[in-house]
Amino acid sequence: MGDGYYFWNDEIDALHWGGNSKRKTGYFEIYSATISCENILDTVFNEEHYKFWIKQIEKAAKYIIKKTNIKPTISEINQYFKEKAKWENLTDGIMFQDLPHSTDLLVINFNYRKRIQLVAYKLKIIHNFALHATHEV
């Protein structure tokens, strides 16, 4: 999703992420924070923002493919918004839904729980940042 400070909405997603991505170090830490979301593009719960988000992604991706013949990746399209379109000056970050699959889901082939992430562009919206837990892998 490009440069920024990333947070999960649910602790279970942080646990899965750490368990899968931190095998080399053998442990990981989870930090908690309160995020001010007044100036966040909320593509998860705000329908207007969600439709706007899709429209901008598809418009920019089509343009990039047409001009370069290269399909942008998820981090590239978001970095383009932040850096080239200067969204970091207009919004404090983006709340979005990560890949939907998770091993904790209790119904087969039904990703009923959103794996919500938030990327904060600015430190000023992050409050009460503190160590929450340490886990061994």
Binding site: K59, Y63, K67, I70
Partner: peptide, 28 residues
């Protein structure tokens, strides 16, 4: 309150200023 119009305008302006060379170089 987030201004979606400004966000869209900034993307449109950024895209309009791109050339094949500038976009390719940025992607690479």
């Amino acid at each position: 309150m987030l201004d979606l119009h400004k966000l869209e305008q900034s993307i449109d302006e950024a895209l309009a200023s791109e050339t094949t060379e500038s976009l390719t170089e940025w992607l690479l």
